[in-house]
Write a protein that binds this DNA or RNA. Structure first.
Ligand SMILES: [Zn+2]
Ligand SMILES: [Zn+2]
Ligand SMILES: [Zn+2]
Ligand SMILES: [Zn+2]
Lengths: 170, 170
DNA sequence: AAATCGGATGTTATATTATAACTCCCGTTA
DNA sequence: TAACGGGAGTTATAATATAACATCCGATTT
């Protein structure tokens, strides 16, 4: 209880940006990729993707379930997990391993394995290509003789927006 | 069911090395660090650390619990999770986020945040300092203005020992 | 010695996350 | 029509993790 910010209720939203643009880009790309690939972005899958894209925050499976139920009254855990599995397979969302949570992928269709910067304060997840890191990593893994299947690079801390807000705590 | 190896029962142990040395180093370092830090490596914590160090594989909490019970008949989930929390706080083990599992830390007392190379075939976890990757990462995070609290860098694939064994599957 | 305190553990219950297994439906195709 | 396959419905349960409160025990203080 050092500072008032510590107990302030709503973590700040990613303020200064046109989030509708994020959403329409992500959904548009998803629809396009699914057509191209001949896989079905069914109503449930589409709705789950939209729910995930309501923010840049990592979101839990059961929270998604609660938010899906008004739209799909029959929704059960399997409903959500199947949709999530599909979206992950198609590279449309990321699973945030260290949170058991999920976040929209900002680069679907391009390279999918990126740095995830996870803010403890606002809970938003920023994706970064970080090509130099990835290059050094590839070299390291080659040297180790390790055959890569997948990478999870997750950094926890305070994002630049929140650093500005909370300078003496957390 | 392509090859006989696919269904072969025991994944190969890290064959060519003196594992007793790994264990005694890790336990010795842990004991030393706890004395220096004035924290208690109690019998339960010591036993859990030893159980984790029985191999280089990532091990699940409830598997540890089963293996602890013969030694500590009162052991319950909280017993294990408390010991794991302590060992993680002290930097003596890693939590493998993408597996919900735990593995001994090979560099306790030195830098603790390293690459984890996780083999899908033998389930062993190799830790690598990867200084060039870490350096590039620090730069990237500085550029992003992100204040780091912790890092989880987990690479899944096939380790060099297993690559030699299974060349046409998985 | 008695009181107090804090860290560790015991104990019970429950929350959270995830999957298995089986059924049904529906559109395509042989 | 029959067979098939993908998606979804449904029920049950597995696996992972924490909360909350009680007890113990050794060290410190009174
Ligand atoms: Zn946005
Ligand atoms: Zn933030
Ligand atoms: Zn060893
Ligand atoms: Zn291996």
């Amino acid at each position: 209880m050092n500072t008032p910010i510590e107990t302030s209720p709503p973590p700040p939203p990613r303020s200064e940006h046109d989030h509708q643009k994020c959403v329409s880009e992500a959904i548009g790309t998803a629809e396009h990729l699914c057509v191209v690939r001949g896989v079905q972005l069914t109503p449930i899958r589409h709705q789950v993707l939209e729910l995930i894209w309501e923010s840049h925050k990592a979101v839990k499976a059961y929270e998604l379930l609660d938010r899906l139920k008004p739209l799909q009254s029959a929704a059960k855990p399997a409903t959500i997990y199947r949709a999530l599995d599909f979206l992950i397979e198609q590279g449309l969302i990321h699973r945030v391993e260290s949170l058991n949570a999920f976040v929209g992928c900002s680069s679907s269709g391009h390279q999918h394995e990126q740095l995830l910067l996870i803010c403890k304060h606002c809970n938003e997840v920023e994706e970064r290509p970080a090509t130099e890191v990835m290059q050094a990593l590839s070299q390291e893994l080659d040297q180790a003789g390790f055959i890569v299947h997948s990478k999870a690079i997750e950094i926890h801390g305070i994002c630049i927006k929140c650093v500005a807000l909370c300078n003496e705590q957390d």
